[in-house]
């Protein structure tokens, strides 16, 4: 008797799993992780954590000041990135770009800025600015321009061509088309991506100090390097509090706008 249900298509899942396991094995072997003693490392780590006994809030005003600087770096970096990305994304949207070559070039610039980690940029900027928050702001804005620019451009491409056509049919200028058809249609995407970037930038700014680009990371690196664990603990608590607060804030803004 013939069965009504066609035979189940061959599943590739086991093959995939096997391949991934094989790959992981190869990586473990190549990085010589087998010589690594997990139990010993666990003991080392718990011993290390136990050194963070009691936080010392002696220098709290200084930490709070530097945390404020961290947020300031993130705010300036995000704002610069937002302004540049908003003006540049038009050129990188396939349907609005004045010329295919312009589209390709700006897209590629955005991708490049997005691909290079902010920390790598920060290192370069410290070479020209010297130690200080300026390098942090520049690094964060460059990376942000790449991220926001590409994401805005992709949003603009998703807007229905009919919306643009309506504006073109009344004889609107290219810029008016962008301001009246483009930006309002992607407003939600803009808010979402910008909040995400700010969130991420506060996080990033907190670690930029490790390479000397200002903010709370500077005393943290110092405290860790000099084995001042109670200071390091206090700084970590300040960072943790701020990051949880910004995440909560942007989450609630997003929810209200959704």
């Amino acid at each position: 008797m013939e069965r009504g249900i066609p035979p189940r298509p061959r599943s590739w899942l086991p093959l995939w799993l096997f391949g991934i396991l094989l790959l992981c094995g190869a990586i473990i072997w190549k990085l010589q992780l087998t010589q690594f003693n997990v139990q010993e490392a666990g003991q080392d780590f718990s011993e290390y954590v136990s050194r963070y006994k009691s936080p010392s809030f002696q220098n709290l005003p200084e930490y709070l000041g530097l945390m404020f600087q961290t947020v300031a770096i993130a705010l300036w970096g995000s704002s610069i990135a937002l302004v540049v990305a908003m003006s540049g994304c038009v050129l990188a949207a396939r349907n609005l770009s004045p010329h295919p070559a312009v589209y390709r070039i700006t897209r590629e610039i955005f991708s490049f800025l997005r691909a290079v980690p902010d920390l790598a940029f920060a290192v370069l900027f410290i070479m020209s600015f010297g130690i200080g928050p300026q390098a942090g702001v520049c690094a964060i804005s460059l990376h942000g321009i790449g991220f926001l620019g590409k994401s805005f451009a992709e949003s603009l491409e998703r807007v229905s061509p009919q919306t643009y056509q309506g504006l073109e049919s009344v004889g609107a200028h290219r810029w008016q088309t962008l301001v009246y058809a483009g930006f309002p249609s992607i407003q939600q995407d803009i808010v979402g991506a910008t909040l995400y970037t700010f969130d991420r930038n506060v996080r990033m700014a907190a670690v930029l100090g490790i390479v000397g680009a200002g903010g709370i990371g500077v005393p943290l690196k110092e405290a860790v390097d000099l084995f001042r664990y109670s200071d390091a603990f206090a700084i970590l608590i300040v960072i943790l509090g701020t990051l949880l607060a910004t995440e909560f804030m942007s989450d609630s803004i997003r929810r209200r706008l959704a």
Partner: peptide, 19 residues
């Protein structure tokens, strides 16, 4: 643009800006 200023269009799918 000169022509489009003189010609009004009404479309099947309205072509307004939804937001």
């Amino acid at each position: 643009r000169e022509i489009r200023r003189e010609v009004g269009m009404v479309f099947q799918h309205f072509n307004l800006v939804p937001r």
